[in-house]
Computed example of a mutant assay.
Amino acid sequence: MYSPDPEESVSLFISLSCISLMSVLFGRKTAGTKLNAINYARSLVVSLYLISWLFSFVAAMLVQTNNFNPLSCTLAVYSCIVLYALSKILIYLFLMEKVYVVTAVGTTRSNFMLYRINLALLMPYFGIFSLMIIYRVSEVQEDGACYIGLLPPASVTLILYDIFISSWLTVLFIRPLMSSTSLLQGPSKGKLRIVARRTLMGSIISLFLSTANVITLVLFKGQERGLICLASCTMDVTLNAMSIHWVTSRGSGGSSNGRGSADNTINHSSEEQRTHPSLSLPSEKKVTPLETHISVTVESYVEQYHSTIDDY
């Protein structure tokens, strides 16, 4: 009678835990949210949750069938490549969006040179994706254990690219925080600085997690047990999603009373603007968060900040 070995049990526990965690995060982020309130940045976050949940779900199924099963072994390496790559692309697009948010003023994405440069820097990832498909490893050994991984041409290229793009995006957040002439400076830009600092931390976390995960692929030289590879990739994707969830969450500085006060201010300001439209001058135009759960974040403030600048 077959009984799971410790590695299989631990891998399955990790997958099931990540499924539960991603379900909770997805529910918290989208509770009470209308579909038409989800803009580009938030759609990236929601998509990342879905991909992370799907990765954990697929990993949970493959972990239980990985031994003595060539098909499961092949599907394991393909899921690691495809779903992991999708999650990384979503994270990079999200970070690029935040670079645009904290550095561009009164210009669209298509007209913002740095945004176009960042998109161009993302293109090599599709070539690396092809390398991962070509240099993949999936084999079932005599003892029935499945071993998957990437050969050095793919794994080394992937780790070098991950380090480069993550470091580049990190520098793009450090520069405006350090510069005295940046858009982030000034007493009225506190929430913009919150966006930059939190996203900087998210970028650093992403760099650390991805580097640690891909280094294991390099060290094993394409001969890592499928159960371990699935578990490490699942943890990588889930922890990255958690860091993005933290980046897009409200700060902890406000208490419930403070939040109520802010809501009253928002309602009062909106009522004044409806009653006395002439009072809304360009220099006095207020930026207020949206009223759905997913939208009451620092990113909502920044998005409306840009829209107010575009109006004048």
Rank of each mutant, 00 (worst) to 15 (best):
E7P: 00
L12R: 05
M22D: 07
V24M: 15
K29Y: 15
K29Q: 15
N36Y: 11
A37C: 10
V45S: 04
Y49F: 08
V63M: 03
Q64P: 00
V82A: 09
V82D: 07
Y84G: 15
Y84H: 12
A85K: 06
I91W: 07
F94I: 04
V99A: 11
N111E: 14
N111S: 15
L122C: 06
M123F: 13
I133A: 03
Q141P: 00
E142K: 00
S155F: 14
L158M: 13
L160V: 10
D162I: 11
D162E: 14
S167V: 01
W168C: 02
T170N: 04
R175W: 14
L177S: 05
T181P: 02
S182K: 06
L184Q: 02
L184A: 01
P187Q: 09
I204K: 01
E224V: 04
G226S: 06
I228K: 09
A241D: 00
M242S: 11
M242F: 10
S252C: 09
G254I: 07
S255W: 00
N264K: 09
I266L: 02
S270N: 04
S283L: 02
E284W: 03
T288H: 12
L290F: 10
E291D: 09
I294S: 15
T297E: 13
V298S: 14
H306L: 12
I309F: 15
Y312P: 04
